[in-house]
Design a binder for these strands. Structure first.
Lengths: 78, 78
DNA sequence: GGAAATTTGTTCGTATGTATA
DNA sequence: TTATACATACGAACAAATTTC
């Protein structure tokens, strides 16, 4: 699906792609993002790398994760 | 199965311990913190866990890391 | 100058626990 | 209960930047 290669580490590239998709409305507020396992297969990376990508989005305050539920797009305020 | 178990995950415990040591002056501003390898042996954890601990301190803006150099106590501003 | 050692950076794999559906 | 999904933690390997000898 996606061809990922470049100077940036994969987890950052993935984070940027998903962040852009949140921005452009592909993933709407409160909607569930792909599971870590889905990210693994979609971008052909390990679970570790998928988690690193989501960790960045969490740090950016773009998403929240909930054990057993999934990762969700956070609502934008201000 | 692991030892040294508590209410908090190990990486957070380690982060809290080191953060406290930064607070009390054990580790002074601009000084180098123990390398990841040292954290591994000192707390008997894997490198991944050691890195998770430092990741927390980075997120808290308490330390900075530099490839090939090490992890340093950040200088307090404000 | 250069090789070796040190240290962080990235990435993979595996196992087990906990929470939710 | 079973399946799904995230949380924690172990290990391994190589790359890249820096330091040391």
């Amino acid at each position: 699906m996606h061809e990922l290669e470049g100077p940036e580490p994969m987890y950052r590239q993935i984070a940027d792609i998903i962040a852009a998709q949140i921005e452009d409305g592909t993933y709407r507020p409160n909607s569930r993002l792909p599971s870590e396992a889905e990210v693994c297969t979609r971008f052909d990376v390990s679970r570790r790398t998928a988690r690193e990508a989501y960790a960045i989005l969490i740090e950016r305050d773009l998403v929240v994760t909930s054990q057993g539920k999934g990762t969700y797009v956070k609502r934008r305020e201000a």
